[in-house]
Design a protein around this nucleic acid. Sequence first.
DNA 1: TAGATTGTTAATCGATTAACAATC
DNA 2: TAGATTGTTAATCGATTAACAATC
Lengths: 212, 212
Amino acid sequence: MRNKKIVGAPSVRRLPSYLDIIRDYQQEREGVEYISGTRIARELDLESIQVRKDLTITGIVGRPKKGYRVDALVSAIERFLSWDTLQDTALVGAGNLGSAILGHREFALHGLNIVAAFDSNSRKIGTKVHGITIMSAAGMDIQIRNFGIKIAILTLPPEQAQDAADILVRAGIEGIWNFTTKKLAVPDTVAVQNEDLSSGFALLCVKMRTRK
Amino acid sequence: MRNKKIVGAPSVRRLPSYLDIIRDYQQEREGVEYISGTRIARELDLESIQVRKDLTITGIVGRPKKGYRVDALVSAIERFLSWDTLQDTALVGAGNLGSAILGHREFALHGLNIVAAFDSNSRKIGTKVHGITIMSAAGMDIQIRNFGIKIAILTLPPEQAQDAADILVRAGIEGIWNFTTKKLAVPDTVAVQNEDLSSGFALLCVKMRTRK
DNA sequence: TAGATTGTTAATCGATTAACAATC
DNA sequence: TAGATTGTTAATCGATTAACAATC
């Protein structure tokens, strides 16, 4: 039987923010060995029990009264998220959003390493965006196989999303971070994470209305 | 007593995707009067009961056997999200991510109208990004009052986030869409929606690992 | 030691799903 | 009419929070 220990999505989503806090703490107070769940919770305005519960999924074990070893905790979170080695990634669609993602330096702290970028617009091909040369979408499958890339970021017009996904899957991609509004049809061996920017804005609008 | 009917965040988050589907349908089959929850669910790979339940929060009433009136449904969702009139918004921080948001045309379909953009980098001030002139952050409070802007998008370096938030609150901002990693301290009359891009990537990484 | 913190087990809360009568 | 769909009420599932013993 499989290691079918299922972890909750909300917990996984909070881990990156914990990681940021812990690293800040590590830098501010160099040499400090322990950080408590209570402190992480305070910084993020959460309940400490939630932080402790979330951290258990990484396998970290703390010490009563002291907290968690700072370096061990960073390692545990990184390992759990597979961020201990940078994930080589391809960006597909170098428009506004794609370019912004290419230039978002903070992603390097979160395990993301974009090694190739593709676009079908011939005027963009060969140009550099934030240090990465844009390549033709025509040779995408070969390049992805050559680089051995397993993750793709989809930031192209919705009409092209499914075609691109098909090519990516055939090229051996195992995970797609989908910023388009289109639902993708892929084999269930391929993980898809849909990112819908407007859902957050919708929530903000409703919060504002109910606050009055 | 207040109209304290609290609606769930997950339901609100799904509404924009329903809106997209319904509008597509409206365009593809012009003149069609009804769309069923079943159909929306199929497009998005959800359960139809979930779609029906979500739609009730907008106040829409459907007709058994037929579904929901297409135009009434669009209106109901838009009204519920306050997207029936475009929300005038200020963008604070015209870096990579900020510029991408300025150029993201799809937001206009989701109630978002960016009417002013600010940056503290003097080399950017006065230049145009996607048709919007970047203004000096120094005069931000006055401009925001003049424009009567109630929503701000925060896309600047984390160190500057709290200071900017303080200015925005004093300038009469009622909602902040926060793309920085910093937790903001604001009066509880001000709504804040935190957007953490790396949380989605974390989830993708974990999905990929547990899929093998 | 006393007080703070962890980690486990139980209780609560909220969201999703199921069942089904009402309806066109 | 028969079959599809809505909307309501109940059941299930999962996430958050509470309580508390163990520990350093």
